[in-house]
Amino acid sequence: MNKKALLIGAGIIAVAAIGAVTYTSAQRKWTINTVVKITGIAWFNRMEQGVKEYAKSSGNNATQTGPAQADAAQQIRVLEDLIAKKPDALAVVPMDPATLEAVFAKAAARGIKIITHEADSQKNTLYDIEAFDNVAFGANLNKRLEKCMGGAGKWTVFVGSLGSKTHNQWADGGIANAAKNTKMQLVDAKQETADDADKAYEKAKEIIAKYPDIKGFQGSASTDVAGIGRAVEEAGLNDKVCVYGTSLPSIAGKYLETGAVDGIGFWDPKDAGIVMNKVAQMVLEGKKITNGMDLGIKGYNKVSVTKGAGAGMIIRGAAFVDVDKSNMKSYPF
């Protein structure tokens, strides 16, 4: 019996200790919870930096959390648990906007303000923040890819998941651009990588095996080009195959150096995180965001505000960056 009590006691102490460490102290002005698609990957770690910066400068209680797996079901659970705590606002990067409509409605009914990012089809949101026009971004990546490929050859595009709205928009933008050029041949489009570098690596290997004359890859999830680059490098095709995609220097850096990846495009998730929280704060203070407004962050100095899918609005910035080997040092993240 003693052993039992000891074990249970140890268990309680362990939980309490961990809880004490992670539980934030006294309540401050507004509580804004940022919920991302999946925690632990470089992209959203960078976003968390922005959230922390915002928390410091504004004095508000801003934190970031997210599911451990890239599964819409898990994100719903995290949101439901947060809603029970009744934060003032939720800033969410949805895994799949459609699946969150009901839970957002529940939050709104409880008086919680909803801000989203990368979800321009979301209905139950007040403002959806987009760093830029997704289709144009995708087309831009594809233009760079096309140029690298010499305007001809087989190419393919990866997405994190077929359900991911923004990834599909980028991919479609790229596909539309390539369609204008008959010498660009699209094969096996929209392979799913679940935002996982290993999966992208496996898929790229398969493509290379299936099409030995493949000339171009376009990635969507931040980890896609890392996986693709690794496969291209292993196959010794650095100079023969062009790889472009959304990613960060910290993820694709080493492949940009060797030439396995030729270029990346991105927007700074840190800034996006700050903007989400700022917009949430403004909403809580009763302010409106209007067309042409300056939100005080680089790339969002003259935002366009258009009607969204539901009653809310879409805030669009102009915050994309083209990065390759030559300028990657300027972006240390």
Partner: peptide, 21 residues
């Protein structure tokens, strides 16, 4: 257990750990 961890703002990976425990 899962909801408790979310409630106190703990990391979601901790949930897997606690379940295993």
């Amino acid at each position: 257990l899962s909801s408790t961890l979310s409630f106190i703002g703990a990391n979601d990976f901790l949930k897997d750990f606690m379940w295993g425990l």
